[in-house]
Computed example of a mutant assay.
Amino acid sequence: MRGSDWENGDALRREVLGNAYVDGVSDAWAGAAELQDLVVRFAWGTVWQRPAFDRKLKSLLTVAMLTAMNRKHELELHIGGALRNGCTVDELVEVAVHSAVYCGVPAAIDTVRSIKQISDEVC
């Protein structure tokens, strides 16, 4: 049963990602209706509806997180959404530059710490 979370989520998802994408993914996910329902109700109908951040900031955060997760398909999708939400190319590039520091270097530092800890225990 479709309720307001689903309807609000579907409307927002269409505004951000575009009707063509939403219609296409609906066909592609035909065998995964529960997953699509979760995405529409929870991600778009609940989380993206929260008032603390505007859509532009949510898009910048989403691009940064998808960069960190190395999820190319979703990243590209949300870059388009970010542009629709008013982000500029320069702002998106700045997110990428900032993400390079926090998505690359800390992972390397954590790895070095683990290597140091393990080598201290073994040696």
Score class of each variant (00 low, 15 high):
95 V>Q: 07
91 E>I: 05
99 S>G: 13
117 Q>A: 15
65 M>V: 12
2 R>A: 14
2 R>V: 07
76 E>G: 15
50 R>V: 04
6 W>L: 07
80 G>I: 03
118 I>E: 14
5 D>F: 09
88 T>D: 07
9 G>Q: 03
15 E>S: 09
76 E>N: 15
23 D>F: 02
111 T>P: 00
74 E>G: 04
56 K>L: 13
58 K>C: 01
39 V>T: 12
99 S>Q: 14
82 A>E: 10
54 D>K: 07
59 S>V: 03
20 A>C: 01
85 N>R: 05
17 L>A: 04
56 K>A: 11
47 V>G: 11
110 D>G: 02
123 C>V: 13
36 Q>F: 12
115 I>N: 11
104 G>L: 01
18 G>R: 02
55 R>G: 05
2 R>L: 01
86 G>N: 13
22 V>F: 05
83 L>A: 05
4 S>M: 08
61 L>V: 06
55 R>I: 02
123 C>Q: 13
114 S>T: 04
111 T>K: 08
83 L>F: 00
4 S>H: 08
69 M>Q: 15
9 G>I: 03
67 T>H: 11
1 M>A: 15
3 G>F: 02
92 L>M: 10
35 L>P: 03
14 R>Y: 01
4 S>Q: 14
47 V>W: 11
6 W>V: 03
101 V>D: 05
39 V>S: 09
9 G>T: 01
101 V>E: 06
74 E>W: 01
24 G>V: 10
106 P>E: 08
15 E>M: 05
5 D>A: 15
68 A>D: 05
45 G>S: 10
53 F>G: 01
16 V>I: 15
10 D>M: 09
64 A>P: 03
10 D>V: 01
79 I>Q: 03
73 H>P: 02
53 F>C: 06
72 K>E: 10
109 I>E: 12
54 D>Q: 05
118 I>V: 14
95 V>M: 07
70 N>W: 08
75 L>W: 05
73 H>G: 09
94 E>A: 09
6 W>C: 01
40 V>W: 00
118 I>N: 10
112 V>G: 03
72 K>A: 13
18 G>Q: 02
64 A>T: 07
56 K>V: 06
116 K>N: 12
38 L>H: 11
18 G>H: 07
77 L>Q: 06
54 D>T: 09
90 D>A: 09
50 R>M: 05
20 A>S: 08
51 P>G: 07
54 D>A: 08
109 I>P: 10
60 L>A: 01
94 E>M: 02
25 V>S: 14
114 S>Q: 07
51 P>A: 06
4 S>K: 15
64 A>Q: 00
1 M>N: 14
7 E>F: 00
38 L>D: 06
50 R>W: 00
39 V>N: 06
27 D>W: 02
9 G>L: 01
59 S>I: 01
